[in-house]
């Protein structure tokens, strides 16, 4: 059958295309139900990347945060109607044996760091279409009682899970999250669930946004009064990355772990003298793995997790035409004051 597929063709332009949907053998046909726009989608839409890179990407179907339900299955793994999270990243088996990818076998890293791995909405078309033909291993079933407009936050949750997976915790550690945006809030949700008793402080600049982080201490940078932290997670990104990471280096205890999760288009100058002096470890995390999504599917079953995600649903945008997609992008781009997304549904 045929369906409409929507692609960003140049900065600010989304066009309709006709796409053929063929259920190949050993694959699963999924009806996409809900989608959410990520900051990376916005960067591609607005053209906020190196023009040379953008010219290689366009035309590109955006969206890598999506959930759906199974409508046909040639694998026998799923039942018709099963609700599933769509995993956006994958790597072909043949690449995993290459020398440069062998370190991906480390359980703390994962295959999605492999050279030649693909990511929907970045290196290949994303999920902005009604039907998606998936390899069965690129789907994770979630409980049908979980509302789909909450499950659509799964990909963000999986990145938070991946970030926290890279840290060896002692529950006596004092942990700090830097950032008051959506991924910071999501990371706070996962952290609070997995480590309810660990001391956590969240640093940000917007007191209104910080007020959403109810189960931990929150501070603006001006309110810093000399504490030291054993583990710090940077989720600021963009042009403020350098300032945030250098503050983290200043606030770190000797031997602290610094997890970097914010994306910056610029090269970030760091106080490496102090990194050396304190013996700090810096780890980069933006890519989640299948096992992170499986962890998320379990997390979503928890009422307290759902209750914390629900306020992030700023609105539901019914997509009937390309104009509705523009409206959803506009709403997310204009939102600077509230943690959340305007989720799209077919």
């Amino acid at each position: 059958m045929f369906q409409l597929l929507y692609k960003v063709t140049s900065p600010g332009v989304i066009e309709e295309f006709i796409d053929t949907v063929d259920l190949e053998s050993n694959k699963v046909l999924v009806k996409v139900d809900y989608m959410a726009i990520c900051k990376a989608d916005i960067r591609y839409f607005l053209g906020l990347r190196d023009p040379a890179i953008l010219n290689q990407k366009y035309p590109l179907a955006p969206i890598h945060e999506a959930v759906g339900h199974v409508v046909k299955d040639d694998t026998g793994k799923y039942q018709i109607g099963d609700k599933v999270i769509l995993i956006p990243n994958s790597v072909e088996e043949k690449y995993l044996n290459e020398f440069e990818n062998q370190r991906c076998a480390r359980t703390d890293l994962g295959n999605n760091y492999a050279i030649h791995s693909t990511f929907r909405s970045s290196s290949t078309d994303g999920f902005l279409k009604q039907f998606y033909v998936a390899e069965p291993e690129l789907l994770v079933k979630y409980d049908s009682k979980i509302p789909a407009n909450i499950a659509v936050f799964s990909e963000l949750l999986s990145v938070a899970v991946a970030g926290l997976r890279r840290i060896i915790f002692s529950e006596t550690n004092h942990v700090a999250i830097f950032g008051d945006g959506i991924l910071a809030y999501i990371t706070y949700i996962v952290f609070r669930h997995d480590h309810p008793d660990t001391k956590l402080t969240v640093y940000g600049i917007d007191k209104n946004k910080l007020s959403m982080f109810k189960e931990c201490e929150t501070k603006t940078y001006e309110e810093y009064n000399g504490e030291k932290y054993d583990t710090m997670i940077e989720i600021v990104g963009g042009k403020y990355s350098a300032d945030a990471i250098n503050k983290m280096i200043d606030m770190a205890t000797v031997g602290a772990d610094l997890i970097l999760m914010g994306v910056s288009e610029e090269k970030v100058p760091l106080n490496t003298r102090l990194v050396l002096e304190k013996g700090l470890s810096l780890k980069g995390v933006t890519r989640s793995d299948n096992k992170d999504f499986e962890h998320v599917a379990k997390l979503l079953e928890e009422k307290e997790v759902q209750d914390k995600i629900r306020p992030m649903i700023l609105s539901e945008v019914q997509i009937n035409s390309v104009n509705d997609i523009y409206d959803a992008y506009k709403k997310d781009i204009e939102n600077k004051t509230t943690i959340g997304k305007n989720v799209m549904k077919w």
Partner: peptide, 11 residues
């Protein structure tokens, strides 16, 4: 023609 446009890498 519509199907071909949909498959085009670059328009």
């Amino acid at each position: 023609a519509l199907l071909k446009i949909g498959k085009a890498e670059v328009l």
